[in-house]
Simulated assay, not measured.
Amino acid sequence: MNIPTVPITLLRFQYTILRIPLQLVEDQLMSRLATESPARLMYERTLGVLDGAVGSALGDRDTERRGDALTERSDALARAAELDEEAARTEAEADTALETKRKQVQDEQAAAREAKQRDVERARRREFERKQAAERDAEHRKQVAKTNADQRAAQRTRAAEAEQRAEQTRLRVAEKAAGAPARAQLKDAADKQDEAADKRARADRVEKLAEAEKDKRRNETALNG
């Protein structure tokens, strides 16, 4: 054994002693964490970098390889965790985008249904208004027809009444014309009856005067005799 080898061997031994508590932390505490836990990965990488640096400095190939392997493993797990996180984030973003797209499609479908419903309601309202307008128009035509019929009936009634009055007038004129000779004869007969009655009355008066004169002469004769 040469002299330079002794200090290096001593340093290796000292590092081995120094690393025991670090390994205990690894075995007792960090091993309880998840394999890809950020704290565990950071600790293992730090331990790997330390092993690699000390092993390289002390010419301890085993320690150096162990450190490199631990560092590489930590980096790989960290990278895997990052990739998983990125994948999860990408998946979440994809899910969010898909949900957004699904919500957009649902909103568009709902808007289309609402627009369709509005179109149907407008069509129903227009049809209802058209029917009401048709009913009002039919009722108006009915009232106009009834008014015209009533007017024609009233005109026919007035015409019939006027014709009846004219006929009555013609009958009165004809009756008057036909009755004129009879009335003249009746008047002549009445006049003659009045004249005969007057003559009879005068004859009665004359006769009464004559009787009175006779009675007077008889009375005078009786008184003179």
Rank of each mutant, 00 (worst) to 15 (best):
N2Y: 05
T5R: 05
V6N: 05
R12L: 01
F13D: 09
F13S: 06
Q14D: 01
I17Y: 08
I20E: 00
P21C: 04
Q23N: 09
E26K: 05
D27I: 07
D27H: 13
D27N: 14
L29N: 01
R32Y: 03
R32M: 03
M42F: 03
R45H: 10
T46P: 00
T46M: 05
D51L: 08
D51W: 02
D51N: 14
V54E: 00
V54Y: 01
G55L: 01
G55T: 01
S56W: 03
A57Y: 09
A57T: 15
G59S: 04
G59E: 01
D62Y: 01
D68K: 12
E72I: 14
S74T: 01
D75W: 06
A78K: 02
A80V: 00
A81I: 08
D84M: 10
D84H: 11
E85H: 12
A87R: 13
A87I: 14
R89N: 06
E91H: 03
E91D: 06
A94N: 10
A94M: 09
A97Q: 10
L98C: 03
L98I: 07
E99V: 04
E99S: 04
T100Q: 11
R102D: 07
R102Y: 07
V105E: 08
Q106M: 10
E108I: 04
A112Q: 15
R113P: 03
E114R: 13
E114S: 09
K116I: 02
Q117S: 13
R118G: 00
R118S: 05
V120L: 13
E121N: 06
R124D: 13
E127W: 04
E127T: 12
F128C: 07
E129W: 13
K131V: 09
K131R: 14
Q132P: 01
A134G: 06
A134T: 09
R136D: 09
A138S: 15
H140M: 12
H140A: 14
A145Q: 15
K146L: 15
T147K: 07
N148G: 06
D150C: 11
A154V: 14
Q155T: 15
R156I: 15
T157Q: 09
T157Y: 05
A159C: 11
A160E: 14
A162E: 12
R165D: 10
R165G: 06
T169F: 03
T169S: 05
R170K: 04
R170V: 02
R172D: 04
E175L: 12
E175T: 08
K176A: 11
A178L: 15
A182R: 14
R183M: 04
R183E: 08
A184G: 13
L186E: 07
A189C: 06
Q193V: 12
D194M: 13
A196Y: 10
A196V: 15
R200V: 08
R200S: 11
A201S: 11
R202E: 07
R202Y: 03
R202C: 08
A203L: 09
A203Y: 11
R205M: 10
V206F: 02
E207C: 08
E207K: 15
K208F: 10
L209Y: 12
L209Q: 14
E211T: 11
E211Y: 03
A212F: 09
K214P: 03
R217P: 01
R217G: 00
N219F: 01
N219M: 04
L223A: 05
